[in-house]
Write a protein that binds this DNA or RNA. Structure first.
Lengths: 139, 139
DNA sequence: TACTAAATTATAATAATTTTAAATTAAAAG
DNA sequence: CTTTTAATTTAAAATTATTATAATTTAGTA
């Protein structure tokens, strides 16, 4: 699990990193750096936001996480580094995995002379929960 | 053309707006707000960056332009509001249209209970020009 | 236990974008 | 054509996520 991941990458096993990785493990809420920071702060009062950013960057670069840039102003993080698409609800602003099966490609590949090494597919709209609430209103 | 667009939207016909729209008309370089500002500044010395942002926002909201958020730090703008994908070259940092034909969907549609109203598809890699230069180096 | 490079921290810096409030102006009304 | 006014522009300050800095601390090793 988490400890093995860090060792594999030759990274020091600090309490901060363990906490961040444990929080992300199996987490499907796609938190931002600040959300991670706020959730850990009570248990790790000395934790710095810079450390959260540093850790997220190291883990992203080494392929353990993926960054989601579905919102203009804030990045979100996904502990699942495998390519898959995401959905942003314009009502509740939450980010969801969307396993649409619409687009699954092996990279790298070539299109029109362009060498494509990666890609992102983002969907925008209303999530099932918010759709349900809207229905309620119209009754 | 440009004048009709502004009138159709009920917007005042200011020199700044005309200049911005004319610069974008048929432009395939996907400029950022700052690039637009820098290109127009010599001819319109009083032009303010805030005006460029305001105009781009109005035009985007009214569906005349689309925002491209393919880069982390900067937004780019495309005078073609029709959905199509984009490519960011990691060498020269330029943004290109990529008419891949991989994904063309009518919105809105439903997937897994999600109401999808829009989507973006971004590709990352190396553009034809930069690939050519790299070949040159390896000789 | 001591050492050292890596990591953490608080703080300051950065940079794109947005807000503000005053001044200007396009377009409608007279 | 002049007046009016609401929209627009402007310069400047504010905002906000993220990154850089430099001093301090610490994990892992000898």
């Amino acid at each position: 699990m988490v400890i093995k991941k860090l060792k594999k990458l030759g990274l020091k096993l600090t309490p901060q990193r363990l906490a961040i990785l444990n929080l992300l493990e199996g987490n499907t809420t796609h938190p931002s750096a600040e959300e991670i920071y706020n959730q850990l702060k009570p248990q790790y009062p000395s934790l710095s936001l810079a450390t959260v950013y540093n850790t997220l960057e190291v883990l992203t670069k080494s392929g353990e996480l993926q960054e989601i840039r579905i919102k203009a102003d804030k990045r979100h993080f996904d502990p699942n580094p495998a390519p898959h698409s995401h959905f942003l609800c314009r009502v509740c602003e939450s980010v969801h995995d969307l396993d649409d099966g619409l687009l699954e490609m092996q990279t790298p590949f070539n299109v029109n002379g362009y060498l494509v090494e990666g890609y992102t597919l983002y969907f925008y709209g209303i999530c099932p929960g918010c759709l349900e609430k809207e229905k309620g209103k119209n009754r």
